[in-house]
Structure formats: structure tokens, C-alpha cells
């Protein structure tokens, strides 16, 4: 389908992307590097160094790294089961995927998180259940642990989907060959499956890490609105204090972390088309 005129069909999208992707990003930089009167300043960027802001940033980094690690541990076995590497391959797996990951999205994500709020409450359903079994109660609501819990819950699908995609791309014969040549299952995993699924793992990591790092909802709902992450700080600057300059400046700092993680991911994953979703 080679036709030299077809490429001009991209014009509507290029215009759209310019207006709604490129220009808005430039706006963030414009507001981030100016003060209220429009004069150039870097004080919005250096504001990250204040105790309140840097604490929110480090806490966000810390919690999102933990939740990314938990997501990897939960998602890898799950992806192995759901991909064709799992032995009982069949059409059913596609159905599992849809039911496990797409269906929950139709119940509003705020409501899902609010439901966890109720379940995790000190006298909530989970603790009544633990009490029944004479187990110690969980006291995690309104703590950083609850925020990690909410992050894992909300972003786990973004780890599983790219992993399943990457695992499905592995030729099953390669694995069989490794087994024939005498590798045990641990060796097969470490030497064959893990390296070949690395692109999926890396894009999963960025897709869990970035939303976790920047969330303000999960911390709002499960952290009892006393624990501020960098996302909460930026959100408040925009919606409560209408301080767009400071909000933009902090967003630029946040973007540096995002860009670093994207650059890291493109180094490992050159063909982004396949595993981005």
C-alpha cells in the first residue's frame, strides 16, 4: 500500500498533537519558569527543596517503588499462568484476561478505592473476618501501607498486560529446547523466560511506577488526606490555591523522574508498539 499522498492524511493528527500535546507541555514549562507577573524565575523549581515539598516527593518515590516491586512479584506468576507458556494453553485464557482486567474498569475507579476504604477500616469487613479466626487485626487504614495497597490494586493490570504480551511472543520451542538440553525449571526461567520477557517487564514497571508516583487519589482516599504525596501537593496548588506557576514548577520536577524512567524503558524496549498496552 505505497502511495506517496497517503502520508498527508496524517495532517489532522499532526495538528491535533501540536495543539493538544506539544503546546500544553510548553505551557507547563512557560508557567513553571515564570512568576505571577510573567517574569522569568526558577523559584518554582527550587521550591521542591523546601521541607514540605521534598518530603512529599521522597515519600511518593518510596511508596511507588515498593508498590512497583509488589506488582512485579504478584504479576509474574499471574502472567506465566495466563500466557501461552502456562501448560494448559487454550482459548479460555483470552476470556480470563478480559474478565480479570477489563471488567473492573467499568466500576468507577474512585468507587473501587472507596470500597477498599470500607474493607480495610479498623472495624471493617476484613478485620471482623480476622477477628473470627482469632488473628490479629490489620491497622493499616490511613497509613502509608494502605496507600501502597491501593496502588497495587489499581495498577496491577498495567504490569500484567505487557508481561503477558511479552511472554506470548516467546517461541515455546525455545523453552522446550532449553528443557531438552537439561535445564531445570529455575534455569529455564532465569536464562530464557526472564531475559526474553524483559521488554514487557520494563514497560510494566514504567506503567506502574509513573501512575503510582504521581497519584493523588489513592493517597487522598486511603491515606486519610493527612499523608501528602507530590501528586497531592501539585493538585492542591492547581485546584485550591490557583498557584499555577508553583504547580507547574513542581510538575517539571516530577517530569524529570518520568522522563528518566521512560528513557530507561526505551533502552530495553525499542519496539514500543507491541508492549505499550
Amino acid at each position: 500500500m505505497k502511495n506517496k499522498y497517503i502520508k498527508f492524511l496524517s495532517a489532522p493528527y499532526i495538528i491535533w498533537a501540536l495543539i493538544f500535546i506539544i503546546v500544553p507541555l510548553l505551557m507547563v514549562f512557560y508557567y513553571g519558569f515564570t512568576d505571577k507577573s510573567g517574569a522569568f524565575t526558577i523559584s518554582n523549581i527550587t521550591a521542591i527543596a523546601t521541607h514540605e515539598h521534598s518530603k512529599a516527593l521522597w515519600l511518593a518515590l518510596y511508596l511507588s517503588l515498593i508498590s512497583t516491586a509488589i506488582c512485579i512479584l504478584l504479576a509474574y506468576p499471574l502472567a506465566m499462568i495466563l500466557s501461552h507458556i502456562g501448560e494448559n494453553a487454550g482459548a479460555n485464557k483470552d476470556k480470563y484476561m478480559v474478565f480479570i482486567f477489563i471488567l473492573p474498569m467499568w466500576m468507577n475507579f474512585l468507587l473501587r478505592t472507596i470500597a477498599w476504604q470500607t474493607l480495610l477500616e479498623n472495624d471493617g469487613v476484613i478485620n471482623s473476618f480476622l477477628n473470627l479466626l482469632h488473628l490479629p487485626a490489620l491497622r493499616i487504614i490511613n497509613t502509608p501501607a494502605a496507600i501502597v495497597f491501593g496502588m497495587v490494586y489499581n495498577f496491577l493490570p498495567f504490569m500484567v498486560l505487557p508481561l503477558v504480551n511479552a511472554l506470548n511472543k516467546i517461541d515455546i520451542n525455545v523453552i522446550n529446547a532449553a528443557r531438552d538440553l537439561g535445564a531445570n525449571s529455575v534455569q529455564t526461567f532465569l536464562r530464557i523466560i526472564l531475559p526474553l520477557s524483559l521488554p514487557g517487564l520494563i514497560s510494566g514497571i514504567t506503567m506502574v511506577f509513573i501512575p503510582s508516583l504521581t497519584t493523588f487519589i489513592v493517597s487522598d482516599l486511603l491515606g486519610g488526606s493527612k499523608i501528602l504525596l507530590i501528586g497531592n501537593v501539585i493538585e492542591q496548588e492547581f485546584t485550591q490555591y490557583s498557584n499555577w506557576n508553583l504547580g507547574s514548577g513542581l510538575s517539571i520536577v516530577l517530569m524529570i523522574f518520568i522522563i528518566v524512567s521512560i528513557v530507561l524503558s526505551t533502552i530495553f524496549d525499542k519496539d514500543m508498539e507491541g508492549t505499550a498496552i
Binding site: 493538544f20 503546546v23 507541555l25 505551557m27
Partner: peptide
């Protein structure tokens, strides 16, 4: 095309708000 996919939603949101 990958920018809105990979960028944080909060940044996409505020960038459009600023626009």
C-alpha cells in the same frame, strides 16, 4: 503519540488546563 500514554495523567491534565 507515546507522550500521553507514558506521561503522568496529572501532568496531561494540568497541561491541558493551562492551555
Amino acid at each position: 503519540t507515546n507522550i500521553p500514554m507514558l506521561n503522568a495523567e496529572i501532568v496531561t491534565g494540568i497541561s491541558l488546563m493551562l492551555l
